[in-house]
Design a protein around this nucleic acid. Structure first.
Length: 376
DNA sequence: CTTATTTGACCGCT
DNA sequence: AGCGGTCAAATAAG
């Protein structure tokens, strides 16, 4: 993925061009779908919304393209605002968010940083999001203004493999089922491979391995399109800066790409949601696979959403799992070409929104292994 | 015994 | 000085 995605972005234009093409296909497919669907049950309305969402995604992509083209030295103050129209313009919120994101980004050494929101299915207070990766908690702190403490985690293989990835998990005050998870640093460990083995062996997931899955689904990207697009929306919002592009370009290409998209995203409602990926797998808990965090800067201008908008497509194994997979596939293709790790996470959870550091090469949602393992 | 979590202390940045 | 993030000793769990 890195290369592809990176290349996509890095190249700036090429990736976006491809994205625009894909989005255009999605719009067309959505339109056709609307024609085929019965006029009742709101199917057409849903189709229209889907088209609308895709349209916004296209707008964002174009804005990103424009931004990347002129990014030299300029900020993206002029960026993708167009995307907001239909979303109801939360520009102010977005700007504030952007500022905040920037602050966060600068707060620490230049590691890539992005956030995602996860929703757990039930209101289990004990529950915490599980992205399938192995993390070791190293701290917890009460945060000013937050009802719940923030948990600090780092990759279990930090010492063993020098993996710099860390994440902060904080339960939303507003919705106990929602967690804001901030990832920082890419996984350089080999969790993904391990995870693959483990998962297949465990029979936990009915899903094919990611890569395989991706290929399989590659041929029919229709249904899942919207999801993909939504995912892209986030992706796009990520980073349009030159630095990011460069970072993306140089990003990983070591065979062990740190980041990989979890598989199986699924769609919830086309409204204004971003991407969501869940895997309907077994599980009792909730594992979420997340949609891939965008690889570039998360720029605020996302279409519509303020930081507080939790887009959660929570859905437990929907019959539409297939479409999900398609999405996953598409997404991974787009963002994480080569080796996306697959995830077979158990239930649902969702990836919400990604905010990447402008300098970010992009997120590593790497693959992963079951948790446990040598810490050192 | 080994590994993970908890938790108060410490550090750096704003 | 306050706050967020990290460290590391103590403790718990497997």
């Amino acid at each position: 993925m890195q290369d592809g995605g990176a290349g996509a972005d890095g190249g700036g234009g090429n990736g976006v061009q491809l994205l625009l093409t894909i989005l255009a296909d999605g719009e067309e497919q959505a339109r056709q779908l609307g024609e085929l669907l019965p006029d009742d049950d709101g199917y057409r309305a849903a189709s229209r919304r889907l088209q609308c969402t895709l349209g916004r995604a296209v707008a964002v992509a174009r804005a990103v393209e424009a931004a990347s083209a002129s990014s030299r030295g300029t900020d993206r103050s002029d960026s993708p605002r167009s995307a907001d129209e239909s979303s109801g313009g939360t520009a102010a919120a977005a700007d504030a968010q952007e500022r905040q994101a920037v602050l966060l980004c600068k707060r620490r050494k230049g590691l890539p940083r992005w956030t995602a929101k996860f929703r757990v299915p039930d209101a289990n207070l004990e529950a915490t999001p599980d992205d399938g990766l192995s993390w070791r908690k190293y701290g917890q702190k009460d945060i000013l203004g937050a009802k719940f403490p923030r948990g600090y985690y780092r990759c279990t293989y930090r010492n063993a493999q020098g993996c710099p990835a860390t994440k902060q998990v904080q339960r939303s005050d507003a919705d106990l089922c929602v967690f804001d998870v901030t990832y920082q640093g890419e996984h350089t460990c080999h969790q993904r491979q391990q995870r693959h083995h483990a998962s297949s062996a465990a029979t936990q997931s009915p899903l094919p391995q990611p890569q395989q899955q991706q290929r399989e689904e590659q041929d029919h990207p229709a249904a899942g399109m919207q999801l993909v697009v939504m995912g892209f929306k986030d992706v796009l919002k990520v980073d349009t800066t030159e630095a990011a592009a460069a970072a993306a370009l140089h990003g990983h290409d070591d065979g062990a790409s740190p980041f990989c998209f979890p598989s199986v995203p699924f769609v919830h409602h086309a409204g204004e949601a971003p991407a969501a990926a869940f895997s309907p797998s077994a599980g009792s808990g909730y594992d979420f696979s997340s949609a891939a965090p965008p690889r570039h800067c998360p720029c605020p201008l996302l279409a519509g959403g303020s930081y507080d908008d939790v887009y959660d497509y929570e859905r437990r194994r929907a019959p539409g799992a297939e479409s999900s997979s398609e999405l996953a596939e598409v997404v991974s293709r787009a963002t994480a070409p080569a080796g996306a790790g697959g995830l077979d996470y158990a239930s649902l959870y969702q990836y919400h929104q990604a905010e990447l550091d402008p300098h970010l090469p992009f997120p590593p949602f790497g693959g992963t292994g079951p948790s446990h393992g040598p810490y050192q």
